[in-house]
Amino acid sequence: MAPISFTDAIERVVAGNRVYAQQTAEQDPNFFKTLATGQAPEILWIGCADSRIPETTICNCMPGELFVHRNIANTVHGNDLNAASVVEYAVAHLKVKKVVVCGHTKCGGANAALGDADLGETLNTWLHPVRELRRKHKIELEELPDDDARSARVAELNVHQSIEVLKQHPAIKKAIHDRGLSLHGMIYDIGAGHLKLLEEAGGKKSNGLWSADH
C-alpha cells in the first residue's frame, strides 16, 4: 500500500469544502441564506453506503432535494429503528412525495450474500435477510452466467424486499392512502453510471407513479 499522509487526506476535504462554499456563494450569493431557512425535499433516498454512489452528485441534484439514508446494501429491516426513524421523519414530518430505494451493481453486500463467509457477528446479522433472499431464489440465481450477474440480481431482489418492508411502515401506509406517496426501486449501474428504474417495484408498469395504493 502506498504510504498515506493522514493530515493531507483531511486537509484535502477541508480545502474542498472551502472551494465549494466559495464557488457556491459566487454563483448565487443567497444560496446559503435560503438553505438556512429550512428544507423541503420531495424525495427520500435510501441507498448503499458505498462510496461510489454519491446520490446528489449522480442525480445532478442540488443540496435540499434528497433526504438521505445510506447503509450497508440499502437494506430495510422491519426491526431497524435507525431506518424507521429516517422514514418517519421524512414521510410524516417533511412529507416527501416519493421514496426511492436504490441498489447497485458490484455491491459488496450483495456479493457477500452470494456465500456464507463469516464477516463477524455484526455484519452476518445485518446481511442475514439478503442471504435468505439468495437461498429463496437459488434456482434462478444458479442459472445466471456469473457472480457479477448473480450479485446484480440479488441487489434487485433486495431492493424489492426493502420496498415490501417499507410498505408496512405506518407513516408510509398512511401517506400512500392520504396523499398518494409512491415508492420506487432503482438500480445504479456502477460501470455505466446509469440509474435504472425497476418496473415491478412500483414503477410505471404496475400502478402508476403516484398510486401505490394496494
Binding site: G16, Y20, P54, T57, P63, G64, L66, F67, V68, A90
Partner: peptide
C-alpha cells in the same frame, strides 16, 4: 439525513 448536506458535494470529493 438532512437533504441540504450532500457529503461528497460539500467536501469536493
Amino acid at each position: 439525513s438532512d437533504s441540504r448536506i450532500p457529503a461528497e458535494a460539500i467536501t469536493g470529493l
